[in-house]
């Protein structure tokens, strides 16, 4: 009897413990699904819920605050999701919060993220509807990826063409890679470049030395400039130079005007220089003058032999001889 009583006690412990474990497990699972705590309900309307199911988690700023209670198709493009949220979150979730369908990691189950938005909002009430944001669905991502893939394929084809052409020896790049002569030339060019660089370095060194020397001279000049008498002389020279310059400038201006006038054919000299018709007339006149003078000489010669005027010319010759004797 004592043995059976002991057995019953042990059995009682076993049964109680087992039942407690079942209850605890049920409570833990139920608690996670907000079955044993006060809740309120809010809704959100989505175009696409991306495989969201009843019982999926609802998170507010990353904290599990509830579960999806129901998903109802309202119209062909709108799906209403009923969310059961813990009552202690009532004060925190504002009516300007937005809901977005997300997933728990890359391969995790779907969930709803409620995100707070800046600005003042009132706490949500039981039965309120909050705004939603459409999620970039996998299909869109795949479409974009498909375009990228197509572009990559085109690029690869082009690259293949380029590499083939290079293999065949056409183009500059191919010559660079495969032409040994060009390689030698390039090598030589690089060598020349190195030599030039070395020379340039030496030239720069010399230039630096010159600059340094000039700096020294400049410093010497500074010392000279400190002498007030020399400075006054320099100033006077500079003033003279300035006035001379002004005169030269004026003279140059006048010369420019004159040259401009001559260029434009103004005045006699300008006409003489520029007017070709006048030049031709003058040339023609000179020819006449030349022939006129020849005839005048002949006439004068004839006058010398004429008996009327011969006496005059003889008298003139005598005077000239007397004058020559006196001298």
């Amino acid at each position: 009897m004592a043995k059976s009583t002991s057995q019953f006690v042990k059995l009682g412990v076993f049964v109680v413990l087992g039942s407690l474990l079942i209850l605890v497990m049920a409570y833990m699972i139920g608690n996670d699904q907000n079955i044993f705590r006060p809740t309120f309900q809010i809704t959100a309307v989505f175009n696409n819920v991306n495989g969201l199911q009843k019982g999926n988690n609802v998170r507010y700023s990353g904290i599990n605050v509830g579960t999806v209670k129901d998903i109802v198709m309202e119209q062909d493009t709108s799906i209403r999701v009923y969310m059961q949220i813990q009552e202690d979150m009532l004060a925190h979730i504002k009516d300007n919060a937005v809901a977005i369908v997300g997933s728990d990691g890359l391969v995790g189950s779907m969930l709803i993220n409620i995100l707070p938005r800046p600005g003042q909002g009132l706490p949500v009430q039981d039965g309120d509807e909050i705004a939603t944001i459409s999620r970039i669905i996998t299909q869109d991502m795949l479409s974009t990826l498909n375009v990228t893939n197509e572009n990559a394929a085109l690029l690869t084809a082009d690259l293949l063409e380029v590499t083939r052409a290079m293999r065949n020896g056409s183009g500059v790049l191919s010559r660079l890679l495969y032409d040994s002569t060009m390689a030698r030339d390039l090598h030589q060019s690089f060598h020349n470049l190195q030599v030039s660089t070395a020379k340039s370095e030496r030239a720069i060194d010399r230039l630096n030395q010159m600059i340094e020397q000039w700096r020294l001279e400049q410093s010497a000049l500074t010392l000279v400039m400190d002498d007030p008498e020399f400075r006054d002389q320099i100033r006077r020279v500079a003033a003279n130079l300035d006035s001379s310059g002004q005169e030269i400038r004026q003279l140059t201006g006048r010369l420019n005007d004159l040259a401009g006038g001559l260029e434009a054919g103004e005045g006699t000299l300008g006409m003489l220089l520029k007017d070709t018709a006048m030049a031709a007339e003058i040339q023609h006149g000179l020819k006449y003058l030349d022939s006129g003078l020849v005839k005048f000489d002949q006439n004068m010669e004839a006058l010398k032999h004429n008996w009327l005027t011969r006496g005059y010319f003889k008298k003139l010759e005598k005077e000239q001889r007397k004058a020559a004797k006196k001298q």
Partner: peptide, 18 residues
């Protein structure tokens, strides 16, 4: 560990099994 276990479990797992 147990948080994650109970987070993953639902009554749909527990009741049929029991």
């Amino acid at each position: 560990y147990f948080n994650k276990v109970f987070d993953a479990l639902s009554f749909g797992d527990f009741i049929p099994a029991t």
